[in-house]
Design a protein around this nucleic acid. Structure first.
Lengths: 232, 232
DNA sequence: CAGGATTTCGAACAGTTGTTCGTCTAAAGA
DNA sequence: TCTTTAGACGAACAACTGTTCGAAATCCTG
């Protein structure tokens, strides 16, 4: 690592941030946090428009006016959930890309880059974990989100560019345009994995009940994407 | 006010059906058709929940009660658009698969099967055509649709099974489970190609303004998916 | 043209939406 | 102890939702 690329690197504070630092101290769940988790769950399950502020406050067992008092508006609450979860996901991806860079002298192979891109969100999909609703929320935000959310996704190319730069280094035979398209396709593998689709696939394949199902799914996805990148 | 019976399934004699046979004769756009096209457009652009019946009737320049009179309810209108467009898309795909079977003595290669799966919806995405809103509507229905719509998609495995069967024949070295997963991934390539994402990609790649852009995109997607299937 | 059927129209319905207001409670600071 | 202040609470607001109804208008057939 004679000349570290700043775009592929991470600042130390990025990697050490605590995702749950926002919670009220002493683990005491304040009204604000109750609203946050209830809203995220309901939004993830039923969609943004179908959930009213009364549904949220009822689920959180707090007063109706709490949302407007603590977050300003329903849309502001939505946006705060979105920005926090997006930052967490980006951080997890950046951390894995950082480790891949360290392990391969700044030139990680295609498979390592794709793994850093795919593994974090798919790991969140583990039904045993409590991150499932967060990734379901983020996937929903991609299509049902407000214009402001989509602007954030669109202007957040700096995060995506770390991966496209790494893939360009790993695939010198490909033009940048080709790399961008195949990266786009790889992202499509992830976004299509909402859990409603899992049922549809279960009808065909016979179920996903294995214990290590998530890791196996990651391997399948990385295999598929890697083949698309290694193609001539 | 008789309801049509659009069958989502398809037999070989259906391949010659006219998609626009439902329109009022002599091209005269009746109120029902005005509502249909206006609703499809608004739903595709703004989403299902954000569009009210007053938005639709205003866009169509018809009376407010027209939706309930001609379709029964807002949800029934939504469902009719969905079933019709789904049937049209399935028919186009089945026709291409049928032709691939005829051209390859019943054993088409992987590439031909994937092309039959990918080309029809991506062709609809051509901004020059008038099918763009239809495919945008269908993509939206996949995540925002009612439970009834998702039931139709989930139980419509007979359509998808034609392709999985053809892929099983073309890839005898793969287990059925592997084929189903890779087919799932290939579908993800398509569903991720909503046009909002195109802008995001444009920021990276520099724009998609070529005349034959759609055909080139189909080639890229088929290349990517084929590589994933031909992988050992 | 007559008259039944079909469609259009305006108005209103009852319910839900996000938000706001004034008041009350309770803990912290001086 | 008195004052300040952040938060919780119930009630209400105005706007909007999908739907329904009866009357008016139009079309089609005999």
């Amino acid at each position: 690592m004679t000349q570290p690329d700043p775009s592929l690197d991470l600042t130390d504070q990025d990697l050490s941030l605590d995702d749950e630092a926002h919670l009220t101290q002493a683990g005491c769940a304040a009204t604000r946090d109750l609203v946050f988790v209830a809203a995220e769950r309901l939004f993830a399950v039923h969609g943004f428009q179908k959930v009213s502020v009364r549904d949220i406050t009822a689920e959180a067992k707090v007063n109706l006016a709490s949302i407007n008092y603590h977050f300003g508006s329903k849309d502001a609450l939505l946006l705060e959930i979105f920005t926090r979860r997006t930052a967490e996901l980006n951080r997890a991806r950046a951390k894995m890309l950082h480790e891949a860079n360290a392990a391969h002298a700044g030139k990680p192979p295609v498979r390592a880059v794709l793994h850093a891109l795919i593994a974090p969100p798919v790991r969140w999909m583990d039904p045993k974990g409590e991150r499932l609703i967060s990734v379901q929320f983020l996937i929903r935000a991609r299509s049902e989100g407000t214009d402001q959310m989509r602007d954030i996704l669109r202007t957040d190319v700096s995060h995506l560019r770390r991966f496209s730069d790494a893939l360009l280094v790993a695939c010198p035979q490909l033009t940048p345009e080709e790399v961008y398209w195949r990266l786009h396709f790889s992202l499509g593998l992830i976004h299509n994995n909402r859990f409603a689709e899992f049922d549809r696939l279960n009808t065909l394949s016979g179920g996903l009940t294995r214990e290590d199902e998530v890791d196996l799914l990651i391997q399948r996805m990385v295999n598929f994407a890697e083949a698309g990148f290694l193609r001539a």
